[in-house]
Structure formats: C-alpha cells, structure tokens
Nucleic acid binder design. Sequence first.
DNA 1: TCTTATTTTAAACAATTTTTCAAAAAAAAA
DNA 2: TTTTTTTTTGAAAAATTGTTTAAAATAAGA
Lengths: 240, 240
Amino acid sequence: MEEKKSTILVVDDEERIRKLLTMYLEREKYLIDEAADGETALQMALNKDYDLIILDLMLPGMDGIEVCEKLRESKATPVIMLTAKGEEANRVQGFEVGTDDYIVKPFSPREVVLRVKALLRRASKTKFLETEPTTKNVIVFPHLTIDHDAHRVKVDNHEVDLTPKEYDLLYYLAQNPDKVFSREDLLKDVWNYEFFGDLRTVDTHVKRLREKLNRVSENAAKMIVTVWGVGYKIEAENQA
Amino acid sequence: MEEKKSTILVVDDEERIRKLLTMYLEREKYLIDEAADGETALQMALNKDYDLIILDLMLPGMDGIEVCEKLRESKATPVIMLTAKGEEANRVQGFEVGTDDYIVKPFSPREVVLRVKALLRRASKTKFLETEPTTKNVIVFPHLTIDHDAHRVKVDNHEVDLTPKEYDLLYYLAQNPDKVFSREDLLKDVWNYEFFGDLRTVDTHVKRLREKLNRVSENAAKMIVTVWGVGYKIEAENQA
DNA sequence: TCTTATTTTAAACAATTTTTCAAAAAAAAA
DNA sequence: TTTTTTTTTGAAAAATTGTTTAAAATAAGA
C-alpha cells in the first residue's frame, strides 16, 4: 500500500509561504525542494524530474508565467500556480501558459494538499493509463454521512444544513476520526493561512455544529468530543 | 459496464491546445497520443489504428487537409478537424477532404468531448453494421427533461427556450447531478478556453436559468441549488 | 455590408448569510 | 473553594449571493 514518494518543488519569494507549504506537504510524505526566485526555480526544474511544481505568479526577476513557459519548452511537469486575488488568475486559468491548476491566495493549507493530491492522481493516471474506478467521496459513520461531492451532510438519513466553516470543520475532523486536534491545529488547517483570530472562534463553530447535529440526533452530536485542556475530536465508536 | 478504451491522436502545433484537449479527453478515459506537426501525425496515424484523430487545419509543413487526404489513401480513421474562425472551414465542412466533423476555434472543452463521443458512437455503429437501438441522449428528472440530440429542454412537458450558455450550463450540471461545482470549475468546463472572465458571470446565468425554469415550475427551478461558499449543483432528489 | 435583435458580460447595489469576537454563565479540575 | 477551561449568547463586521441595469459582443436579417 506504500507508494514511492513524490517530489515537489515549491517556489515563492516569501519564506513563510514556502515554509507553510513545505510543512503541510511533508506531513503528507512528499519530498520538498524550495526556491525563492524564478531563475533558480527554472534551473532546478530543468535539472530534476519533479512530480509537481507549485509556483507563485509574482516573483522577483523572472515571474511565474515566464518560468512556466520556459519550462514547457522541454518538460511537461504539472504546475500549480499561486495567484493573489486580483492578479492575472484569469490568464493563468485560461491555460495560456501551460498551467495545470491555480490556487488563489490566501489559501487554506488543506485546500492546497487536496489540489496537489488531485493533480498528482491525474498526472499518474496519464502515465499508467489505468481505468480508475471513479472514487466516490463519502465518509460514513453510524449516524452521520458526509458526501463530499454533493457537499451534503446527513444525520440518520436526514439532511442537515451547514455553513461553509461548519462543514469544513466537520469534514476535517471526520477525515481523521479519533484524532484530537488542538484549536491551533484546527485554525491552521481549516482556516486559511492569513487568519490569526481568536482560538475561541473554534468553540463557537463546534457549538453550532453540535446544535445542528443534535436537532436530529443526540448520538450524532455526541460524536464531537471535547478533550479537556487539549481540543476536539470525532469519535467513530462512542455511538449507541 | 466497462468498455475498452478508445485511442485518440491529437494533432496541433500549439502545445497548450494539445494539453488542453489531452487533459479533457483523458478525464473521459480515452488514451491519447500527441503530435505537433503534419508529417509526424501522418506517420503515427498510419502505423497505429487510432479510433479517432483530432487534427488542426493549420500546421507547419504539411497542413491538416493534406494529412487527411494522404491518410484517406489507406485508412478510414474518423477525423475531427480544428479550424480557426476565418479559415477554410467551408472546404472542410464540405467533407471534400474526408473529414468527419469539424470544430471551430476557440472551442469549449466540453463541446469537443461531446463531439468526440458522438463520432466514436457513430463510427462503432458503422463498424458492426447492426441495427443498434440508437442510444437516445436524454437526461430525465422528475420535472425536467433534457433531450440533447434535439437540444430541447422540457419542464413538466412544457418546452423552455434557453440561450446557448444557459443550455450548456444546465446540461453540464445535469450530467453530474448531486455534484457541486465551483464557479471556477464551471467557467473552465462550460465556457470556451479563451474566456477569462468574471466569476460572477456564472451567477447571472444561474439567475436567468432559474427564472426561466420557474416560469413553468417552481420545483424545477429549485433543482439548481446554491451551495453557500462553494458553488452550484443540481439536486436530483430534493423534489416535491 | 449595415442594421437590428439577441445574448453575454460586468459592474453596482441590495439582500442575505456567515463569521468573528467579547463577555457572561456554566462546568470541570485542582 | 478557587482556578481554569469550556459553553453559551448576542450582535457587529465581513463575506457571499441575488438582482438590476447597461454596455459589449454576437448573431440574424434586410
């Protein structure tokens, strides 16, 4: 079940962004190289076969678009472009420069990891040309079902309306059942990297989440467990 | 339920167009080869039995028409010709050169996929020369029916006039019921590859689509669901 | 070709929903 | 009991979507 680790090149002039991405991607067992400017990045990308490159659009000297175009003259390495909100996201989106996907800053780390996985999956599919049985994206617990494609949550087969953050939070916890996350962890992973808000914000969302689940089933609400002095987790078992 | 995968040769001198087509076709589980010029393309097409060839009209050296004519001396492989707007679409259209279909640039990726499917269906039918119960291309929901062959939408058996984009959008969502698409997804897949517009353009089309459906049936309009903070989807169930 | 009608896009504003933060109340631990 | 932590509550601030309107692009017709 273990695959060979993919190597990823992360390019951004801001060190904190590089470190942030590196941290999250290494957590997923990818091997990461970093570059802070376009020239270096291009050289590295040409000299080594990366499985993926994450490339900031705005770079000192040679910008992301130019790097991508130059790279494309000799390599087809998948590229995810990072663009600030107003920037030329459109142009990047338009495939004009051979970008495979793009992410708008500020992003949530979780989102980046998901996109990276998706793109690597797509790329490897291309390579091996295998029929992948379209994986349904559903998490199932005794009283709770999360259909990620439909973005739908059901408690005892009864649909529950969640706000985006409530959904993200539940989905994140549900992906790692029985693992406790501190409020810091949750703010880091579920919120985007620019959010430096109050830790208590997490509590508020947990409260509303529990309330909504509880309206349908007390058992479902009890799945979200407070670990005193530590944080929150979802318990898969602990169900009637 | 799994069929053998069709192999397709994509020929265009612009890499971004090749990559774009490859990406969308691979998503549909086709096996893709690429060629950047006419000579290479012809050689590849003669040495391997492709199920379909997508051929750009304008190519350096030997152009698309010549490739097609030369190919036709020994093979009947179906060919879709890509032509820029002003180009000799007429000549190609007239099937003078043995082309089976043609698409005018810029195209929307979705359109290409549909044409490819249609042509492959036609071609395979020809092969077996059997009375195949012409697969109707109809999507049916409780209050909504989309007949793609006729390009006709009916709500509670009452025909609804949609503009092209409205239709495309509805059809795209209807093909993947219960799956949420972000505005970015929709712009990428439903609009053509040259469009780099505002995300909110999607909202406007959704609004008008809902309005037109709502004139006939509120239930039909309610099928198009806003997923707050994420995008839009069509709900198959959620119907009275 | 020129004119007219239709469709598409985009911007601005309104309406709605969500998120955040702060502070009091409650609960758990020491 | 005292202290610490969590839960609850409410309301302002922020973000997102809905709606309207006008300009731009496109297609159709004269």
